[in-house]
Simulated scan of single mutants.
Amino acid sequence: MFLRKTLTLAACWLAISSPVWAAPAHTYDFGQPASASQASRSVEIVMEDMTFEPKTLELKAGETVRFVLVNKGQLLHEFNLGDAAMHAGHQQEMLQMQQSGMLTPTGMKEMSHGMAGMDHAAMGHGMKHDDPNSVLVEPGKRAELTWTFSKATNLEFACNIPGHYQAGMVGKLTVSQ
């Protein structure tokens, strides 16, 4: 009994006295977010239910692009920059958000009972949609994402809401020298 109390007290002391570790900042080898004022051009992307228009984009390394996203569909959609592996991982996070009730077919819910803003280390970035390479757009709404592409690469822009990518809501993005 004494040993258990001593270990419990020691664990509590360590928890209180240890520094708070911040989640690592997201870094992307293909670029970084930028302000809209840095953009050399704007590209409008229309989101309908399970499609993007245009379906392909060609950009130059070093270019900063302001993506103007218009959701003309009836469902919530996402615009996410990355490669296929990144999208597969993000789809699992989005599925967890949907299963928790936070993600609905037409929007995001504010979670009560301690869920709002709660970081889930197992999800990698918390149960919130805050990745700098991604934006959610509700039906009938517009949003923007501005990105500087650092190197030549082949990427995808995709909607990772459960089932949308699999239904074809993905486009090709080629960044050349």
Rank of each mutant, 00 (worst) to 15 (best):
Q96K: 14
N154P: 02
G82D: 12
D29Y: 15
A116D: 13
S18C: 11
G117S: 10
S37I: 14
K128Q: 11
F67V: 02
T51Y: 03
I161P: 07
H120E: 09
G171K: 05
A158F: 06
N160G: 04
A122L: 13
L173Y: 07
Q96S: 15
Q99A: 15
A167Y: 02
V70S: 08
G117P: 12
S112K: 13
S40K: 10
G31S: 14
A122M: 11
C159H: 07
Q98N: 05
T6D: 03
G107T: 06
G31A: 15
T64E: 00
Q177T: 08
R142I: 04
H113V: 11
S35V: 05
V170S: 07
G126I: 05
K151E: 15
V65S: 01
D131F: 09
G140M: 09
M1R: 00
Q92G: 07
M1W: 01
Q38A: 15
L95T: 09
Y165Q: 04
R142D: 06
S112W: 08
A88K: 11
V135K: 07
N133M: 11
C159L: 05
E58H: 02
M111H: 06
S17C: 12
M97D: 12
L155D: 09
P24K: 14
T27M: 14
D131T: 04
L173C: 05
R41W: 13
Y28T: 13
Q166F: 02
A122E: 11
Q91V: 02
K128A: 09
E138Y: 00
L59C: 02
E53T: 13
V68D: 07
G107Y: 01
G117I: 09
F149C: 07
R142G: 00
H129N: 10
T146E: 03
K60W: 00
R66K: 03
P132K: 04
T51V: 06
I45P: 10
K109Q: 15
S40P: 05
T51C: 02
A36E: 12
E110W: 10
L103G: 04
E110P: 08
N154A: 14
S134C: 08
K5Q: 11
M50L: 14
L69R: 01
L76G: 04
D49E: 13
K172Q: 15
P105F: 06
N160E: 10
E44I: 10
M115E: 13
F79V: 01
M50D: 14
Q32I: 10
S40C: 11
A121Q: 12
L9H: 12
A36R: 06
D49F: 12
H113R: 15
A85G: 12
C159K: 04
P54T: 01
A84Y: 00
A34M: 11
K128C: 05
V68I: 07
A61P: 00
T174H: 07
L75T: 08
R66G: 00
A88S: 08
A121V: 15
K128R: 12
G114M: 08
S35L: 13
A88R: 08
S35I: 05
A158Y: 06
S18I: 02
P24M: 11
R4I: 07
N80F: 08
A158Q: 10
T51G: 01
D119F: 14
G163E: 13
F52D: 03
V175E: 04
I16Q: 09
V135G: 03
L59H: 01
M102Y: 10
L81N: 01
H164S: 09
D83V: 05
T153A: 14
P33H: 14
